[in-house]
Amino acid sequence: MEKTKINITDEVAIHISDMNKWFGNFHVLRDINLEVRRGERIVVCGPSGSGKSTLIRCINRLEEHQKGSIIVDGTELTTDLKNIDKIRSEVGMVFQHFNLFPHLTTLENCTLAPMWVRETPEKEATEIAMEMLEKVKIPEQAHKYPGQLSGGQQQRVAIARSLCMKPRIMLFDEVTSALDPEMIKEVLDTMIQLAEEGMTMICVTHEMGFARQVADRVIFMDDGQIVEQNEPEEFFKNPQSDRTKLFLSQILGH
């Protein structure tokens, strides 16, 4: 398993400093400091409720942080709606439950955002969409509705839909957790392919095999804090903190 590291650059893609977030009184993210460079592939793991999903949802402002700063591609996330829309159009996100638009065909799911947000002409948007659907290996499903596809196919369409916006950063939020075991591989393969092309990626996932194979850095979170981060080899071989050890023994132990 040879990993390509040539893609990582010095350019900062995401800069998070001293970021805090509360849900009501619950302190869900505490003093998060994280710098992601362009081309870097990061896997975030941790027990459920540790704030890992909330962390990546803050990056495209699906959740609002209350303290500290998040700078994405040089633009700081503030209450300014224009900045938020701009960042969202450059940061793709794939969800656990796919969230495809059930009233539109696969192709329309993919062309909608480019046509309305980027004002790409329909013909061009369709070409891009077909290209992306081929990339995730389901061009033949272009005219079906999401309800007619399997879970794995839906998730690949969701990835294609994000890619159609030509994002510079991709966020994956437990994208294989809702899938039947035999469909996990086809989605992971798509993500691996994307990683090999040098996409900047942050993946919240429990797929440790995937983490080993593609991640440049593994981040372990617990209780809303980043507890440990390291290169995957080191992370799995020599976990430093007790919490990490416990977590790894629980998910790798069987």
Partner: peptide
């Protein structure tokens, strides 16, 4: 409608009115 529909359209960069018109209202 599941909350995910709002989140998906927001994450693609659609504005409030675009997402209402194209995603939320039709459904």
């Amino acid at each position: 409608l599941p909350l995910g529909q709002h989140e998906a359209s927001a994450s693609l960069g659609l504005t409030y009115w675009q997402s209402q018109r194209l995603i939320i209202m039709p459904q």
